[in-house]
């Protein structure tokens, strides 16, 4: 599968995750979010950026409960809970946010 932004083609897997990590840009995230009828706010970006940093450091996309805990540590308790994260990313915080962040599907997501 693939999509196109301003003439450039982006390969994805069958679930819409970016095939090449290095293809990612903020525009890609915006495009993917629009496809899901989601407007990215600063709160979304906080999580997306966090995931990209996590991947950079550990070479994996974290499972949802790992993400939740880590967000709580980094951004505070009021954000480190499933309610907050599911409101931002109703399709599942790890899965949806990882997709926008250009990462593969989280390891340990079942």
């Amino acid at each position: 599968m693939a999509f196109e932004i301003e003439g450039k083609t982006y390969e994805t897997d069958e679930e819409g995750y970016l095939a090449n990590l290095s293809d990612w840009s903020p525009e890609v995230a915006d495009f993917m979010a629009k496809e899901d009828d989601c407007d990215l706010t600063d709160n979304h970006w906080e999580v997306i950026n966090f995931l990209r940093e996590y991947y950079e450091e550990y070479q994996i996309a974290p499972a949802v409960r790992v993400l939740t805990k880590a967000i709580g540590k980094r951004l505070g308790k009021e954000k480190g809970n499933s309610k907050y994260l599911y409101e931002l990313f109703p399709y599942g915080p790890a899965k949806q946010a990882c997709k926008y962040a250009g990462l593969p599907k989280p390891t340990g997501c079942v």
């Binding site: 450091e57 550990y58 070479q59 994996i60 974290p62 499972a63 790992v66 805990k69 880590a70 340990g108």
Partner: peptide, 14 residues
Amino acid sequence: MKNFSPTYHALGDY
């Protein structure tokens, strides 16, 4: 090849 040794550092989070 992908260097997956950094991933061992994530085990604690899991």
